[in-house]
Amino acid sequence: MNLNLHLKVWRQASPNAKGSFQDIEARDIPDHASFLEMMDIVNERLIADGKEPVAFDHDCREGICGMCSMVINGRPHGPERATTTCQLHMRKFRNGDTIWIEPFRARAFPVMKDLMVDRSAFDRIMAAGGFVSVRTGAPQDANALPIGKEVADAAMDAAACIGCGACVASCKNASAMLFVSAKIGQLNALPQGQPEKHRRTLGMVRQMDKEGFGNCTNQYECEAACPKDVSRTWIASMNKDFAVASGREALLASARERSEGD
């Protein structure tokens, strides 16, 4: 079955240009097509009409690279639970539907063009501690460090995050707490991550603040929007880890001052 849809698409020529919604009629869209394939069809027609196609980020189109973004009818990645935009299929829409398509909106994710945003803030947060400092070639045998299945599974739950930024886009405050907590949580949960636990937590949270994301107000829109079902409990763990790390840092600093005073 084919669908006729009314699209309201955010068009913005460049980062500093003023954007606005453009009405586009998308006729005859096959319902087996994916949402991005619908966008492809629309773009082909725009090009044929001598107009600029809609710019949007996408790559793997199988729900894992985290490159596709867009907010569809107010929801990052659209209406389907635990599904990225690229895996959303048109059979979830009805003939005659109006669909609003907007970029992820956050001060920390500036719009580059149309639906494309700059998410490099996430890379900078990762560089502030999202790793285990292990040199290539140094490690022991992998099975020399047994890790309980529950711990490994929990770390995997956090590691499932694809870094798409839907948590930021959905949050009323454009907060990045779900992303950052998943990244911190994965490594802080594992024995390999223990030696740098405090440093990592402080570094990544401070970088997150610096990037201009908002604060968590415990509304959990992020969790509802997450295409990989990352849980809010990681945020709780991060809060605790941060409090402990901050306390430890303050104690160490005052101890240092005292010993320097001697």
């Binding site: 309201k8 955010w10 919604f21 907010v71 009818n73 107010g74 929801r75 609003w100 907007e102 909106r105 956050a106 001060r107 920390a108 959905s170 009323k172 405050n173 454009a174 907060s175 201009g212 994301f213 908002g214 604060n215 107000t217 415990n218 509304q219 959990y220 829109e221 969790e223 509802a224 929007a225």
Partner: peptide
């Protein structure tokens, strides 16, 4: 800070789970 973090509002506003009270 939260207001500043979302400088431009969405054209189509939608809330999934956040309670009215929380907002």
């Amino acid at each position: 800070q939260n207001r500043a973090a979302r400088a431009e509002p969405y054209g189509y506003q939608h809330t999934q789970v956040a309670s009215k009270s929380s907002r």
